[in-house]
Design a binder for these strands. Structure first.
Lengths: 340, 340
DNA sequence: TATACTGACGGGAACGTTCCCATTGGGAAC
DNA sequence: GTTCCCAATGGGAACGTTCCCGTCAGTATA
């Protein structure tokens, strides 16, 4: 654990100048093969490891891209991260992950730290940050947003068409014969507003505006559970619940089952995201798919593009969501129909 | 996006020397209040942000702790990360997360990069790295292991007593009357070997060694699914399956249900970790709890301790696991008993 | 033979901080 | 009034690289 060896130590040992060592380390040619061999041997013996801090200082770039994930408990982001990682590695960058635990203040600090570390770019995945805070960050570094469809100058955005996805969900339920369809909302979560808007407009289009009910939620299991409990307790029970994401749908499932009701017999239930959770046979949740890995890849690609072409304009990528039919939706039961 | 302001720009604007600016930024007293005000104002106006790269270079430390997580898809680690984060933040360090996607080669590269970034310490969560590779890393930086119980000089270890946990699981099943208890293994996963050993010795203690069956797995859902399918297809069907972690237990659940068998009616099923997955009412998996958050806190504390007291000896912390009874275990059914 | 070019190499400046040391001025103590 | 001390400040060195430029020997070209 003594002072770690520097390029100078290696140079001394190899009997060359620090310049030659630097060249060898960076894989430059225009180094004689004998020098190259001597340097490699010396580096190996000393256990030399390049100092990225010093390199970053002089190059004025780090080849790091910061990734702030709002919630590591939501497996939705795991696959987004896969995509982010893969795209970064393919272009010679590293992705460094931090999180703010769904707390805007903590998220802000996390991003601030990434900027102090001089990340060359930043991806915000599911950020709950205010638009002007993000705009502020965007003035010092290329930023890409995943999931939050904010229209900001100089900020790349990669989203699925959340409004369209919500419409698909409502249309599916309406097609089955449901009319009393409640939404468990996503609050300030990324994309929640769009999903809410899609739900509302789809309900209107189906002439079901008077049935529309929006129950507060926050994209967590706990939020879904509480939301569903309120829906079941209060007034006429809906025949279908559309939860703003899979995480909260699973919470709702818990509440429904706790109330001794059957899904989809008594209530149909839908989620959003098509996470691994939804695919579990035991849950088998009807949901809306978004291409998570691809979203991650596109976001990283967008940031890298603007890192390497500083003038380039930010872009907005909107991906098409897709309905995934599973076992939690069915025609409304007769008994409930009759009760109207 | 022009060159970001430095301490010198701020100094010039505030009409003081760079030393004073540095002092203000680091919150040193022994700066007159007028200078302090001038510097703060200038920094604010210029949008100055401290350059952690330059600071790290001169201080020869980064206040970064690298965290390499083997699998971000396994929510087990999400709560470990909560603990790691909290403990780091409380002591003025940042945690930077990377992953190797359960691939030893990728994990190695990920850690190597953390060392190039000159992380002051590294936490390996669920690492699948070879012991000598880890030992090599430990020669340049304090390392703590989460989940992998490797006895290495100068490496902190935080684990639950996996062998004991597995024993608890087997004893529970035996207590219910099971004898034909199969294990779905965790392969090279962290803690898998200990859980396997606990299973084997508990089976022996219960005089059930001849029933012991170890089916390969890898801590993933897919692995659990495949393992259970093989168990159900081949020979006498076990009356209980103990999966090495919740993730694979859920996969096994899928396979069992696909085979039109009832849990726990036809087969009892246990997991390990007590993740949020297991707690889902719809799954309600009997499992073994480990205090994830606390594990994360302890691991971070251990690394920080050795960062700040370079000579200190590494420690090994073993936490007690605890049985969590839920709905997937019951007495073996009569029909199966009779078939013996 | 003189000139130009090329490959290999070395040395110094720069990156943006922190840290150490020297300097200054004013007030307290005598 | 002198001495001493301390708070406040400034300047330079250092951290470990990369990058640029200059040098030098050897070879090709005229």
């Amino acid at each position: 654990m003594s002072r770690s060896p520097t390029i100078i130590d290696v140079a001394r040992r190899a009997g060359v100048s620090k310049s030659v060592v630097s060249r060898v380390m960076r894989g430059e040619r225009s180094v004689s093969s004998s020098s190259r061999a001597a340097v490699s041997a010396a580096a190996e013996q000393l256990g030399y490891r390049a100092n990225a801090v010093a390199r970053s200082l002089v190059q004025r770039r780090t080849y790091n891209v910061g990734v702030m994930v709002s919630d590591l408990h939501n497996i939705f982001f795991a696959e987004v991260l896969d995509g982010l990682y893969a795209a970064a590695a393919a272009r010679g960058y590293r992705a460094l992950i931090t999180t703010g635990n769904r707390d805007p203040a903590a998220e802000r600090i996390a991003v601030e730290q990434l900027l102090e570390l001089r990340a060359d770019g930043v991806v915000l995945a599911g950020a709950r940050l205010e638009a002007d805070v993000i705009a502020g960050f965007a003035r010092s570094v290329p930023i890409a947003l995943v999931g939050s469809d904010l229209r900001l100058r100089d900020v790349d955005v990669v989203v699925d068409d959340d409004s369209r996805g919500a419409t698909l969900a409502v249309e599916h339920l309406v097609g089955l014969g449901h009319r009393d369809i409640a939404l468990i909302d996503g609050g300030h979560g990324a994309g929640a507003a769009q999903r809410r808007a899609g739900y509302e407009s789809a309900m209107r289009s189906a002439k079901l505006a008077r049935f529309a009910r929006i129950e507060p939620g926050d994209f967590t299991e706990e939020g879904g559970y509480e939301g569903a409990r309120r829906l079941l307790r209060r007034g006429k029970r809906p025949t279908a619940i559309f939860a703003s994401n899979d995480q909260s749908a699973v919470g709702a499932l818990n509440a429904i089952e706790e109330a001794d009701l059957d899904v989809p017999g008594d209530i149909s239930l839908m989620g959003y995201d098509n996470t691994a959770l939804a695919a579990l046979r035991h849950i088998s949740l009807t949901t809306v798919h978004q291409p998570r890995r691809q979203i991650g890849e596109m976001a990283m690609t967008a940031v890298l593009r603007r890192i390497e072409r500083p003038g380039a304009r930010a872009q907005r990528h909107v991906l098409a969501p897709r309905l995934v039919l599973r076992a939690t939706t069915a025609k409304p039961s007769r008994s409930v129909k009759r009760s109207r």
